[in-house]
């Protein structure tokens, strides 16, 4: 595919990048790895007059740990995240999702922040952010703000980012002690977008004290099922509790149908993945009863 024409900007600093975005607003798109943006442009699904390539902006390529958790900069590729010990120990969901994200060559170019800003509801990273309770740091010429994952994904390929904002960083909060996590999915072909997938976590102190179930490929945004999470709290982490949760997921989730799978099949898969994901999460902390 051949990209439509655009004016190309290559700022060296974040300050220059946000000034450009302040000027061009919704006529501009931010380019990092380009693994979502370039296909969209090739297919003429987006046609920006200006492309702002942040690939050379200093200071956006770090994975750093803080007392409050771990942060991932806008230029951190999926491959960098996949190999990061800091993420494996502090934000294991990110690490666990990586084998499912595209293929090696896609992971080498595509960025974690880019996938989140693109907000494909069938992609892994948005659902991981919701499961982990991540904060998205948005910077514009008006200043910086943090947007909680629950507020960030507003619709199909739509986020709470304003047209003049750049997603510079994602912050994952520190894991509570006794927390196990898992990412599971069913795709027609390995590396394809999931038919349905689940990023989940369980915190256990003899019984379950916190749970997160974040589905992807099951709606127009990643979906948290708060009522099912509530059902798990106070239960022992065992097969019976997970079976009950799976049944509750099947009755509350409302996936849509497409050529790859019917709504009923996706609903069924969501239940299977609930059982599978929670079992894996419990086994990662060694608490499976």
């Amino acid at each position: 595919m051949k990209n439509p024409p655009f004016e190309y900007h290559q700022p060296d600093t974040l300050e220059d990048a946000i000034q450009l975005l302040a000027v061009y607003g919704d006529e501009a798109k931010v380019l990092a790895g380009g693994q979502s943006l370039l296909p969209l442009m090739g297919l003429r699904l987006v046609r920006p007059s200006h492309v702002i390539d942040i690939g050379r902006v200093a200071g956006l390529g770090a994975i750093s740990t803080e007392s409050s958790g771990v942060s991932v900069g806008a230029l951190v590729s999926h491959s960098m995240a996949e190999r990061s010990e800091k993420l494996r120990t502090n934000a294991p969901l990110v690490h666990q999702a990586m084998p499912y994200v595209g293929h090696r060559a896609i992971r080498n170019r595509g960025t974690v922040c880019g996938s989140v800003a693109h907000a494909d509801p069938a992609a892994e990273m948005p659902a991981v952010c919701r499961a982990a309770g991540a904060s998205m740091i948005a910077v514009s010429s008006r200043g910086e703000r943090a947007i909680e994952a629950d507020e960030f994904f507003v619709g199909y390929l739509q986020t709470a980012l304003d047209v003049d904002e750049i997603l510079t960083e994602i912050r994952f909060p520190a894991l509570a002690e006794g927390t196990g996590t898992a990412v599971v999915e069913v795709a027609r072909r390995h590396g394809d977008y999931a038919l349905v997938g689940l990023a989940c976590s369980l915190t256990v102190e003899s019984t379950i004290t916190a749970a997160a179930l974040s589905f992807f490929g099951a709606g127009s945004t990643p979906i948290r099922l708060g009522e099912v999470e509530q059902l798990l709290i106070g239960e022992e982490p065992n097969e019976a509790a997970f079976t009950t949760a799976a049944a509750a997921v099947r009755s509350s989730i409302e996936p849509s149908a497409d050529v790859h799978g019917s709504a009923n099949y996706r609903r069924y898969l969501a239940g299977v993945l609930t059982q599978r994901g929670l079992t894996q999460a419990a086994s990662t902390v060694g608490v499976l009863a």
Partner: peptide, 23 residues
Amino acid sequence: EHGVCGACTVLLDGAPVRSCLTL
């Protein structure tokens, strides 16, 4: 030419990338 088939793979600093999805 949209990142699916891998025929256009080249190495960029030693790492495989899709040359059709790289400007």
